[in-house]
Nucleic acid binder design. Sequence first.
DNA 1: AATGATTTGTACGTATGTATT
DNA 2: GAATACATACGTACAAATCAT
Lengths: 82, 82
Amino acid sequence: MIDRDAPIPPYRQIANALRQRIKAGKIPPGRRIPSLVELEAEFGVARDTLRKAVQVLKDEGLVETVQGMGIYVVKPDEDVSP
Amino acid sequence: MIDRDAPIPPYRQIANALRQRIKAGKIPPGRRIPSLVELEAEFGVARDTLRKAVQVLKDEGLVETVQGMGIYVVKPDEDVSP
DNA sequence: AATGATTTGTACGTATGTATT
DNA sequence: GAATACATACGTACAAATCAT
């Protein structure tokens, strides 16, 4: 799934893959994304790399992380400045 | 300089310290911040921790990093949406 | 033109802390 | 208390960009 020879680093490839899933509605708003442990198994990368990917999506306002719980897809109208 | 017993993690303490320096004008806009190697020596933390601190300031739009060059204090009117 | 030094970027591994269930 | 999940920190290695020699 990860192309190690691509000009775009793995953490961005993963961010793109997850973004696509979310945009496609495969993971609906409010629902949880697979945990880091699960993603680790799926993508075969270190957790550090996954954190960077998740950080990209957080910066985009697409997901939120909650310590002890998981990574959640934000609802469209959530935390949007009025 | 870093209080390991404080309720706020080291990377945030460092971000605060650097922000204070910038706001106080000790590092003027356009000028470079000490390199990660130098900050490593100054604060006595791992580079990973410094990267997180710098990331905080980047998110605030206070600094910019340029690969191969350094970390720069952004000018007040730089990259502000019109 | 090419090499080396400096600096940030990315990735991996490990350990411990903290919050939630 | 135990299990699960994210947060933080340290260390290491290599890649990529920039600059000076």
